[in-house]
Simulated assay, not measured.
Amino acid sequence: MPSSPTDPCDDEQVSLRRKPSQRRSARRVERMLDACAELLDEVGYEALSTTRIAERANVAIGSVYQFFPDKRAITQSLTQRNVELFISRVGRRFMTEEFTGWWHAVDAIIDEYVDMHRTVPGFRSLRFGDAVDLNLLDTVSENNMVIAGRLRGLLLEEFGMADSEELDLSLTVAVEAGGAVLALAFRRDPGGWPPLVDGAKRLIREYLSSQLQAQRTARA
């Protein structure tokens, strides 16, 4: 079985100086992440600073440095939160809806991604970190490879696909290609231009269909 990309949760110690041990501290950290998300949408990553984040979160700058060494670390923690929210939302869909095939599950995954683009502060500016740093989630694997690994786990569990290096590669290509088209959709229209969103779905479905069929044929 191919090795899985590093789970972004395993990198939490990289972005946090220390984990908040009390509920009050945890809420303070969440306010910092919320402030970071809002500022990313308003001023962008280059103009982002720990001072601005502290002011927006209404905390002392020392409180920021108590948990985070710099703005990159805060952005990394926000990215991890985005990933966990995305996987949670997709997992909830998988638990509550009946998919007649994996292609409907892929459509649901894309719908959740698009909705987060529209509704989650900071997500359109950061996504899964690729807008800032291709290795923000993991020092070895690029961000989209980490996401592909997480989605692979969901699809394997739900549809019993055969785990293989070929499936890994196919999902990585699908995430990269689909992500590029979706990024274009949101550059064209802040709400996501529907023809390009539909195009991303078709691209991913048709590519994965052809790859899965080729893998079945090769094993026959």
Rank of each mutant, 00 (worst) to 15 (best):
S4C: 03
P5H: 10
D10W: 10
D10S: 15
S15R: 13
S15E: 10
S15A: 15
L16I: 07
R17D: 03
K19P: 05
P20K: 07
P20W: 09
Q22S: 15
M32W: 02
L40Q: 06
E42G: 02
V43Q: 11
V43H: 03
V43N: 03
G44S: 07
Y45P: 09
E46R: 15
A47V: 01
T50Y: 09
T50N: 10
T51E: 12
T51W: 10
R52Y: 10
A54I: 12
E55Y: 10
I61E: 12
F67A: 02
D70E: 11
K71E: 08
L78G: 05
Q80E: 13
N82D: 04
V83D: 00
L85H: 07
L85D: 10
S88W: 05
S88R: 12
V90I: 10
G91Q: 08
R93N: 04
R93W: 00
E98H: 05
E98D: 06
F99N: 01
W103L: 04
H104M: 05
D107L: 06
I110Y: 04
I110F: 07
I110A: 04
D111R: 08
D111V: 03
E112W: 03
Y113D: 04
V114S: 09
V114A: 12
M116R: 03
M116V: 09
R118T: 08
T119E: 10
V120P: 00
P121Y: 01
P121H: 02
P121M: 02
R124Y: 00
R124P: 01
L126R: 04
A131M: 14
V132Y: 06
L134Y: 09
N135T: 09
L137Y: 05
T139D: 11
S141F: 11
N143F: 04
V146H: 01
R152C: 12
L155C: 01
F159V: 00
G160L: 01
M161F: 14
M161V: 03
D163A: 07
E166C: 01
D168A: 00
L169I: 12
S170N: 05
E176C: 10
A177T: 13
G178M: 06
G178C: 08
G179P: 10
G179W: 12
L182E: 01
L184Y: 09
A185I: 03
F186P: 04
R188S: 14
R188I: 11
G191E: 15
G191A: 13
G192T: 01
G199V: 08
G199W: 06
A200D: 07
K201G: 09
R202K: 12
R202D: 12
L203N: 05
L203M: 14
R205N: 11
S209A: 09
Q213F: 01
Q215G: 02
Q215F: 02
A218W: 04
